[in-house]
Write a protein that binds this DNA or RNA. Sequence first.
DNA 1: CGTGCCATTGAGTCAATTCAACTTAAGTGG
DNA 2: CCACTTAAGTTGAATTGACTCAATGGCACG
Lengths: 215, 215
Amino acid sequence: MILTTSASHSLLNGHTPPPRDLRHKVLARNAVLFWQDERQPQAIEIVEGAVRAVRLFDDGSRQILAFFWPGDIIQAAALQRYTAEAVTRCVLRPHNHKELGALEPSGTDQALQASISLLAATGKKCATSRMAWFLLQIYEHLPQDPRRPQALRFTIPRNDVADYLGISMETACRTLAAFRARGLIDLPTRKTICYRDMVQLARIAQSNKSEDAET
Amino acid sequence: MILTTSASHSLLNGHTPPPRDLRHKVLARNAVLFWQDERQPQAIEIVEGAVRAVRLFDDGSRQILAFFWPGDIIQAAALQRYTAEAVTRCVLRPHNHKELGALEPSGTDQALQASISLLAATGKKCATSRMAWFLLQIYEHLPQDPRRPQALRFTIPRNDVADYLGISMETACRTLAAFRARGLIDLPTRKTICYRDMVQLARIAQSNKSEDAET
DNA sequence: CGTGCCATTGAGTCAATTCAACTTAAGTGG
DNA sequence: CCACTTAAGTTGAATTGACTCAATGGCACG
């Protein structure tokens, strides 16, 4: 049988989380780190899992501004402009402001920078391009799937993908299905993804047209 | 005859610009303040006119991230993430970094913050809502029209409005025409606008549906 | 008083949405 | 550990909002 060389049984398996540093905090799925328009002096480092920065509206709809991944530090501004929620079960490490200072190079909130990229990707682009861009975006952040080698855990629900890209959940599904049919990706499980043709994905991410000709 | 109490004949008339402080710089329409990915240590204050922050793409398309208005200061980050261009003829005042320090409260680039609002407005909203939101956005910044009282100079070309809201120029036109037909605004001239029903505009800006029932 | 840019309007097309049924996976508790 | 319950994901069909392409109108500028 084929097993990955990493000690995957002790990390990232999510079944029996090993005991952690006391300074680590574990949050359940959909738990809120902090609310928009709330004072939040602390900064939070993602150790494991994924966090979404989301703007909530009165009518119940929402716009996801950015995702945070292990290694990212959510630099909380004086007044939050978004709510931070756990996409998956998360392990977090709170920081105090003092030890941070040097960490954040530009002094600019990461979510703000990310939102510019998002605007660029969503503005005047079709759903196909957006999804391709998204897949490339998250590629380096997705954890390995412990069960299948070569596969990554697609931890973001379709729901969130849609609200991030400004499309409906249904078209998000259809777009992914189309990519799979074209052999650009594979989806062995709903929460598992294999990247097959990154070059083609990159090409699609650029264009605004439904060019399905080659490959 | 009715005249505004301000000394409007010496300011904002745009025909024969009065001689200015030597530290003021005048830029022609569409002139570039600085390019994206360019080092730009200075900060620039808008004295008169309008400036757009725009992200340019290889295929010739673009996404406008924000507009800057008189009083705004473009805080140039270490590395620019957008190009700044003059929408109209502009009067600018360069600042050096030292005297700024205290000015920018959050230390965050204004364009970045604005892009979050833009995302919120454009994501998953119809063209009508976007345009209503835009009109409310720019209301307080538009200069008076010297010719007609009560009218404001609609200095942003339809072109730019479209690339800002992520819609085509044609739908931008149609949407404005619809608002005029409904009596929400008036457009005495292409470059002139009268706001008639701000409350209704605000209502439309919220919703994502084409609710045209009441006026 | 042309000439060219910007704006407007029309008609047809297509992508994406909505509404709805259904399938699959994930929890939950006996 | 299995049956049951609920949530998440997937597909279909019809509708529509926005786009493209194209032609016309108007204003500004030389």
